[in-house]
């Protein structure tokens, strides 16, 4: 499993691997929104948590279709399916690799973008915490969606339609945690719900995704 994780990380960081694509997209969203909304610090401060979370979510979505599609096309998926690693483990490892190259960098970059969007001072801790706890769920749900659409030609579009509605709870609790953190009221509740979502996704979705892949391999 370590070998698979290292391979996926290596592939993502080599030329053409798509590492940084999500980050650049996140950066662009955070730069464009103030330009579109206009120079109103109070308004920006109010919408900052929501914009940052939506940006992170869309940035995650960009690279989802690569999770399994590339392995499916070059025949690696067949070989992984009969390898000694259980397919559930393969899914979990690939979701983890996806998070390490998208979710984690997004989380680390988010405070800088918070400055661009005039996020109020108390919000930064909650922004990083909520993204840190919530983005793993985005990768896991995304891996499930990618598993469902893996055999389809141009499945990326369908993948977005399938996955975005499933991202709603994570978005609501994530943005809510930051907003409450800014107002100084009860952010831990939203964070706990967010962590619950991530834990639930980690426990259930690798099994669902592995089942979907088995069907798609036939």
């Amino acid at each position: 499993m370590t070998a698979l994780l290292l391979r996926d990380l290596r592939l993502a960081t080599r030329a053409g691997g798509g590492f940084g694509l999500g980050l650049a997209f996140f950066l662009l969203v955070a730069v464009l929104v103030p330009l579109g909304v206009g120079p109103e610090p109070a308004l920006l401060a109010r919408i900052a948590p929501g914009i940052l979370w939506v940006g992170a979510l869309l940035a995650c979505l960009l690279s989802l279709d690569r999770i399994f599609a590339l392995d499916f096309e070059d025949g690696s998926m067949d070989l992984l399916a009969i390898a000694p690693i259980p397919l559930e483990g393969v899914v979990a490892v690939k979701a983890l690799a996806h998070w390490l190259v998208t979710g984690l960098p997004l989380t680390l970059l988010s405070p800088v973008l918070g400055v661009l969007l005039n996020l109020p001072g108390p919000g930064y801790v909650w922004l990083v915490l909520s993204l840190g706890l919530g983005t793993p769920a985005l990768s896991l749900i995304g891996a499930f969606g990618a598993a469902l659409t893996v055999g389809l030609k141009r499945g990326g579009l369908l993948l977005s339609l399938l996955v975005l509605p499933l991202y709603v709870p994570t978005l609501i609790y994530g943005a809510e945690a930051v907003r409450r953190g800014v107002d100084g009221q009860g952010a831990p509740t939203a964070l706990l719900l967010l962590a619950g979502l991530t834990a639930g996704a980690a426990a259930l979705l690798p099994f669902a995704a592995a089942a979907a892949i088995r069907v798609n391999l036939r």
Binding site: T2, A3, L4, R7, R10, L11, R14, A15, G16, G17, E73, D74, G75, S76, D78, L79, L80, I82, A83, P84, I85
Partner: peptide
């Protein structure tokens, strides 16, 4: 059992040795 078909399961960005070392590691 192991299987080899029309697709070789190779990663274009990895070297020949890295590709092989990966499958060796997966199978221990």
């Amino acid at each position: 059992l192991t299987y080899a078909a029309h697709a070789d399961g190779l990663k274009a960005a990895l070297t020949a040795r890295e590709n092989l070392a990966f499958w060796a590691a997966v199978h221990g």
